[in-house]
């Protein structure tokens, strides 16, 4: 039984500029969904609405059928974890301090720290491979290590739904794979529902179950990678001509730009 996140007629504008218009979507519980689309098409805005960080102008986001913007913030934060695209941390903070913050929604003023917190934080550090660096300062890390520290923070939140905005952007090829494999493992072992913004269509094809493509404030197409990654769709989403072939290892769609 995992949580089910959907949205209905979601509209968002910043001031007078509309960014999302009447978006309807359904994150398949227990599966991984990629959100793709050109820069500035509203992917981050969509994820911020889904995570309750941003209130939509109209429409609503439903968690198991209940509107999340009406629910208790802490309750929602125990079910949905969100990693923003550009996360900032102050100087002097250690990896451990950051990951501990992920336990915030599970703590109360009177109960700050339990052995359960300890166990989950250690597990999260281990999952991203930062256990032995837990005491290093964030400002001393490389971009990729920093990204993994942030991922450990959301993992420590121990939620059923994970919303990640560009989790692989600063990573080298090997670490991109590591993160996406980790996400796949979490989904397989614990039945997590994951939605993440990815820019690399081939990675999305290889590591996700569903793809949602955004264009012009709305969902252009969505479905399994085989249905979304087609020559006409790539032309519509990015205005790029390409060929789609089956990749030699897994037979999944793979694009090659012309």
């Amino acid at each position: 039984m995992t949580a089910h996140l959907t949205c209905e007629n979601l509209c968002l504008s910043y001031g007078k500029t509309p960014v999302l218009t009447d978006v309807n979507l359904d994150l398949v519980p227990g599966q991984i969904t990629a959100i793709v689309g050109p820069n500035g098409c509203g992917k981050s805005s969509l994820l911020r609405c889904l995570s309750r960080v941003q209130s939509p102008t109209k429409g609503q986001v439903l968690l198991d059928g209940e509107p999340i913007h009406k629910q208790n913030t802490k309750q929602v934060a125990r079910k949905i974890a969100f990693m923003p695209q550009s996360a900032t941390a102050p100087t002097g903070m250690r990896i451990m301090d950051l990951v501990l913050r992920g336990r915030t929604p599970h703590q109360s003023p009177l109960q700050q720290w339990t052995s359960e917190d300890q166990r989950i934080v250690e597990r999260a550090l281990d999952q991203v491979g930062l256990t032995h660096r837990a005491h290093e300062l964030l400002e001393d890390l490389s971009g990729g290590q920093l990204q993994r520290a942030w991922i450990a923070m959301v993992l420590a939140q121990d939620t059923e739904i994970l919303l990640l905005d560009e989790p692989t952007t600063f990573l080298d090829l090997a670490h991109q794979q590591d993160i996406l494999k980790l996400v796949r493992e979490l989904q397989a072992d614990r039945g997590l529902t994951v939605a993440m913004v990815l820019h690399d269509i081939n990675l999305a094809s290889r590591f996700t179950d569903n793809i949602i493509a955004l264009r012009d404030q709305n969902v252009l197409c969505s479905g399994v990678p085989q249905d979304v990654i087609t020559e006409p769709n790539i032309q519509d989403i990015y205005g790029l001509a390409c060929s789609v072939i089956a990749d030699p290892h897994h037979g999944l769609p793979h694009i090659i730009l012309k």
Binding site: V76, A77, P84, L98, T104, P109
Partner: peptide, 23 residues
């Protein structure tokens, strides 16, 4: 002192704090 406890998660930015359930 209470404000220090409440403000602590805000050092990670408004978005992250909201996502962690902070009002």
């Amino acid at each position: 002192l209470a404000a220090a406890f409440l403000l602590a998660p805000l050092i990670l930015g408004d978005d992250t704090a909201r996502a962690l359930g902070v009002r």
